[in-house]
Design a protein around this nucleic acid. Structure first.
Lengths: 137, 137
DNA sequence: GGGCATGTGAGAACGATTCTCACTTATACC
DNA sequence: GGTATAAGTGAGAATCGTTCTCACATGCCC
């Protein structure tokens, strides 16, 4: 079902609480990208109500440990996804099913070079890519 | 002072009200990227108080007519900039002075090709680039 | 087992943005 | 120039995602 993912500890050296374990399971059970409130709904409908604040805290802990990444935004809400891949890259999100595709970052060779041609030094960048996956196509 | 910009009507065929003219002037007087509330502050401190709702409405009218573009976000707030350049491209924003640099988009040739290799069709993408400009460097 | 640092939950707070509604005004038409 | 009216305005309420607060609960180390 899942592609093999880098085995990363969801929370690093932090404490293993019941709520955080439920949240990590819910994240693993989700095949694509999700928002914090979708996660909350999923947990609630499975009878595991977890406070929204707790979910946000768990998500930022997971983000910090590299277990999940922010892959863009759906409307106003931040979109997260499980990512175990190493190295700098971006994510394309399928607008149909939410599937996430890893995308190499060519900024350094292309856009970066173009920008620095004007004496501009890029320090940070973010890319949000939406599309339609093979299955939904 | 300014690079020559494509002469675009700020509001298209819409009505020329006093408030909108003030807002367009404030946008023109700003050399780099700005948020809606920065624009509001600037207008207020110049003695031209304009309602925030009006500024948002004017900005979306300007965005629609292509007079300004959304170049990313500073914290939670959307970052706008005057852009008269044709064709698809992105914008790099200097974190020091807010200066905006146009950046070619190489997504179609590079990232796009990589993604579609997996059967993924990219329909939409956004890029936010931050850095330091020649002057601030 | 005890102590305490850390996590939790509910709800308030926050900030950006949008909406509402009564009022004003630019513009088209006479 | 006068008038009708569609479009814009302003103030403030509403909305929505996210973060903060605070009292309480609980993992983990000794």
């Amino acid at each position: 079902m899942h592609k093999p993912l880098k085995a990363v500890d969801p929370y690093g050296p932090a404490r293993r609480s019941a709520a955080r374990m439920l949240i990590a399971q819910a994240v693993d059970a989700t095949s694509g990208a999700f928002t914090a409130s979708e996660l909350a709904e999923g947990l609630a409908s499975a009878g595991n109500g977890v406070g929204l604040a707790t979910i946000y805290r768990a998500l930022s802990a997971m983000e910090e440990s590299g277990y999940v990444v922010r892959v863009g935004a759906r409307g106003e809400a931040a979109l997260f996804a499980r990512c175990g891949r190493d190295g700098h890259h971006h994510h394309a999100v399928c607008t149909g099913c939410g599937a996430v595709e890893h995308v190499e970052c060519h900024l350094d060779q292309t856009v970066g070079a173009a920008a620095t041609g004007n004496g501009f030094t890029i320090t940070d960048h973010e890319m949000t890519i939406f599309g339609v996956c093979k299955t939904c196509n």
